[in-house]
Design a binder for these strands. Structure first.
Lengths: 216, 216, 216, 216
DNA sequence: AATGAATGAGAATTCATTCAT
DNA sequence: CATGAATGAATTCTCATTCAT
């Protein structure tokens, strides 16, 4: 039994070691690509940052484009993993749901390097249709459909005075997008309290009358 | 007299000719930079599109970075030229003002290649602080302050039930940004009626109760 | 007894297994080198074709050059194995001998991949003096000397009107060389009946008057 | 007139200068390619030998393959320039014609670096079909047809006892090929008097009885 | 001023060779 | 012994920049 396991374990180690390297490359590539964009990223730099030789990259990825796509795809993957669970919770009012989504966005996207994915998709999406398509399928359309479903429920319950969100669930994400871009591009020039902005926007969506003073 | 004038006129012609070339380069560069991004743009291509020799670019611009900054700056310049006039008109209700702004955005930005400037600023802004700074100063902060002023007036008139727009004028532009990005990146995957989305959003801002049927 | 024999047999098996691998590498290398030339041959491809790992090649050969030389040398080796026997047969007239040699050439060289050795020696000989030297020693000079000897006998017998072949036995091989090269390089452009050409050439050597009609 | 000519002359200088560079590259490439073969030739070395920068090669040639083909084609071009004139001379007997061709071969090919073209075509022809095709069209088929024509005349005149050459004009070139290859590959091992070999071969073709003693 | 040929640093990619397993 | 992952030197090709004309 142990004699049979030994080579297995060794192979397992090798496989794990390989996976570790592959991941190191993807991690390093993510940083470089988001910092520099596709064209300006040098594979030299990726290799060095990943602690591997230049040639090693080509053991895992066909060429620079392949590395780019795999990097973005891998980074996109887990983005929406726990969005579903939030939306499906039946004990939340729609207002509470929106608040939770804002918090989720803040914690999982805005304050992480995952924020940069969005910029990357915007920057390179038109030149890498596979990325645009994947992002639309895995993130955009799933996100929109979740919101649409929740909005439907909310409107049936009388929690949602307007059907705007039902018709254009994009509107929920619009201020988040502003938040991402502002944080990445203009935070030097002028800070923006994204959290407060999202809260104000939630009130608009919910038709909460508001005069700027604390709610009663 | 004529002997004195001749060189003058010639010089004038030369100056105009120069300006024409400079503009041709900027125009060509704009197209290339917005299509390809900074790093992937070849000055060869710019020169050919502008109908000048490669060396000529260096008579007007220090290097590629300089050309890029000047290109983006020149393209940004006229963006807000007629925003002021709309906002200053006193005969418009706030609702009418927002409708006019949406129309202005659609006609002057979304449907023109100027739309690409926004993407370019998002893509390259963090690597070209001068561009981010200029864009913020010339476009963002002016746009925000105009909206803030108008919102103030509207609220004083009782036309605006919420102070959200007053505190975060960014919210007005958020769906426009969605419109720009969607049009550039995802229109292949799924079309989006930007105009209708903006209208729905206006109603949210104005607190117009809405059930999706045509307004009475 | 068996305890003593076992390692022996095992060692024997190992040795045989080794030899098998070595030969597999040489075979694969031969194909690659003749198809691609020395520089364009990748050891990856050789290893794969031989069914061994890349590293295994280095257990048998110092480096790529060494493999190349050993490959060509091994392939050259058996070329002339049965030339002697033909030449030494005393029951053959010189005309019959030449006919047999033509047939031998056709069957053993022209129609086999061994034909490519000649091209390889021509292509790489000047860059691999050991190969040129070996080929000259093992093939060229032996072949020439056999022909010279036979020509001597033939002339003594009055079978050979000219001493051209005696002085330049290369002349016998000249059309064979043409046949090899034509087959490898120009057969696409224009086919060549090598057999008929060799026959015509034999008649020239033997001084057979010829008018193109079938011999009586 | 002179004012019109000045720019012309300047342009002419530039053009000539360009042509000089192009030729320098072709010359350097010829040496490298014939010495090293296609794959082992480094463009670095070509550029250095030509006295130009690496990038300059790409102003004239699309890539390494293009340079190779153009190099070989340019080198092949003039090979047969004056073959026609020899063959067309009506005052020569066929024997004299063959002697002149041998001399032409010796002077124009065997003793020049043009000899290497033949080796190059043999080495790389099967991997560069355009080269094989061009060489066949421009050199081989023209040479063969010239010989065929002359042989026809000679046979009509009774100067040629055998129709071998008529049916296989390749036979005339076979010993020349031997001469080329021997000179390039085996002259270290054993010298070969190509001239004498060609003479002996001519006698065979012409059916001159020969016993090795000087002709009367 | 304008040109565009020439440059050469720089980047992607390949592949012979090594070496830990 | 055999493997094949990892290496990094070497090579092709590109393109921003310069400069003689």
């Amino acid at each position: 039994m142990s004699t049979l396991e030994t080579p297995k374990r060794v192979a397992g180690k090798r496989v794990r070691e390989q996976e570790r390297r592959r991941q190191a490359i993807l991690d390093a590539a993510f940083v470089q690509f988001t910092n520099e964009g596709f064209a300006a990223t040098r594979l030299d730099a990726v290799a060095e940052a990943a602690g591997v030789a230049k040639g090693t990259i080509y053991l895992f990825f066909k060429d620079k484009e392949d590395l780019f796509e795999k990097t973005v795809l891998a980074a996109i993957g887990p983005t929406l993993s726990n969005l579903d669970s939030v939306v499906e919770r039946n004990d939340l009012s729609f207002a509470q749901l929106l608040a939770q989504l804002s918090e989720l966005f803040r914690r999982e996207i805005l304050l992480t390097r995952r924020r940069e994915i969005v910029r990357l998709v915007i920057s390179e999406g038109s030149r890498f249709p596979r990325i645009a398509e994947f992002y639309h399928r895995e993130v955009i359309s799933r996100g929109l459909s979740l919101i649409r479903k929740a909005a439907q429920r909310a409107q049936a319950n009388g929690e949602l005075p307007s059907d705007a969100l039902l018709r254009f669930p994009q509107l929920l994400f619009a201020p988040m997008l502003i938040g991402i871009i502002w944080t990445s591009v203009f935070s030097q020039q002028e800070p923006l309290d994204v959290e407060a902005m999202l809260a104000a926007h939630r009130d608009l969506l919910l038709g909460v009358p508001h005069d700027g003073r604390a709610k009663p």
